[in-house]
Nucleic acid binder design. Structure first.
Lengths: 260, 260
DNA sequence: CGAAATTTTGATCACGTTCAACTTCAGTGG
DNA sequence: CCACTGAAGTTGAACGTGATCAAAATTTCG
């Protein structure tokens, strides 16, 4: 569980960058949920112990080990997955910019899933206990955490439906729309396209399909003119048709009510 | 969306029952997570607007409609599910005593799933906004909510793995162990057995199987002497073997760190 | 007791897995 | 610059699992 290469940001770094959080996808997500003062953001920033980079393919969290950090993903893709005894792998969710590594692993005595960097990552680390102390001082952060956990649970539920009752074509359509929507909320997708740096192997492990079948399903969506793919860039050619095929509904969280 | 039959508890009821929460499965769950004072429990109790009973088969939450309550299940089973356009149904999770109806539905602009009473239910209702206000006054409730939401997300992830990469036998074994564990934490299961008031149809919709195949899989587990079933009572005859078959790991949340 | 819901059993078939080979592409060293 | 290597993507054929449909047996409940 050795922490990968890290660069401690000097204390002064905060003053050099007047708004270190500005434009951070995690802050973007928080601000869709709740109004935070400068002061709030400042105290959150003070919890950050390190600003680290992780290389592609490194495991950040390992199934079976204790983990007690929250890492806010600034850049890159990761995957939360489990290897079963028979060697099969299920990807439970992908972590995109703005997501938190350690949710849910840090809340369990031992993590139940591993998290692997799918691309190079850049993230900010704080300890769960520090975050919890902040929640006692500023309850809005506890509420924000609740909302984010609910969002996670809802995405997960959607994945269960995908795997349980949707056809391969439906799953794939749903998956593409979900990733697009998540990237869009943090400003990393255009209206109809986005970069998807994932191999078909890992996508198939997320959707519960074999690689060949995912490949054929992908070809089908391309053939029907619903999506186009060039390199790592996915273009949603016929978004409406995709939404129909994938039974896709955007995930609209309410905002958090503010204190009276 | 009309609220079903309800009986408002008179304000005085609280005084008649000195500890109205005592033995409530939701409180039992909270207390495994965090130390709550009499005073805390009291203020939570004051949020309860109604104490309602719901008949079997009634929908409590309806997909597509706004819902803004939290209902603490005191007794009975419910199911959170979604009907797809092709008519198939996926049960995303079951709600057991101690669970919260409205998690996650109340956090979304419109609920994405329906919740149906599988047996007669008894539950305590409060509004989400009242609960949130309490979180501002007593941040421990915000943290508790986070922890519960994380637990929900983790169960959901496990269901995704079930549906995605486990064989029918594995899924069923896992399912039985999960329900047993959840009932046990609220004191509704003996060491090796519990009452499971669910039809095979709804179980198959939870596991993503057809009814006939679930039936055969159940017969298999019985045949191999791993479980025994008489009426609605399930007995885990060979728990160890079941855990191996189902890849089951108990879900151990950490306790919530307390304020300094 | 009768009607409806649920459980059980059987036969057939389609879908998606598996396994294998081949292609394409990116990166690397000769 | 090209040959080599390994990873990722694509295609094909055969097989098996679990769905589907249908009907019987059993239980539950009004």
């Amino acid at each position: 569980m050795g922490m990968p290469h890290r660069e401690h940001r000097a204390n002064t770094a905060r003053r050099i960058l007047p708004e270190p959080w500005a434009g951070h996808p995690f802050v973007a997500r928080l601000e869709r949920l709740i109004r935070l003062s400068e002061d709030d953001l400042d105290s959150l920033w003070r919890l950050i112990e390190a600003d680290i980079k992780v290389k592609k393919r490194r495991d950040l969290v390992v199934d079976g080990y204790e983990y007690r950090k929250l890492c806010f993903v600034e850049e890159g893709f990761a995957a939360r997955y489990k290897i079963l005894r028979n060697g099969k792998r299920q990807v439970v969710n992908f972590l995109l910019p703005g997501d938190i590594v350690g949710l849910p692993g840090s809340f369990l005595q031992k993590a139940r899933y591993s998290v692997i960097a799918v691309t190079d990552l850049r993230l900010q680390v704080c300890s769960l206990s520090a975050y919890v102390q902040l929640c006692y001082e500023r309850p809005q952060f506890g509420l924000a955490l609740s909302w984010l956990a609910v969002e996670e649970a809802t995405m997960c539920a959607e994945h269960t439906i995908n795997a349980g009752r949707r056809t391969p074509t439906e799953r794939l359509a749903h998956f593409l729309l979900e990733v697009h929507a998540r990237l869009a909320t943090v400003g990393q997708a255009s209206d109809t396209s986005f970069v998807l740096p994932l191999s078909q192997e890992i996508i198939s492990d997320a959707l519960g399909l074999s690689v060949p079948h995912l490949n054929r399903t992908l070809a089908e969506l391309r053939g029907e003119g619903l999506v186009a793919i060039e390199g790592r860039r996915v273009e949603l050619v016929d978004r409406d048709a995709l939404e129909r095929v994938g039974h896709y509904q955007p995930l609209n969280l309410t905002r958090i009510p503010s204190a009276p």
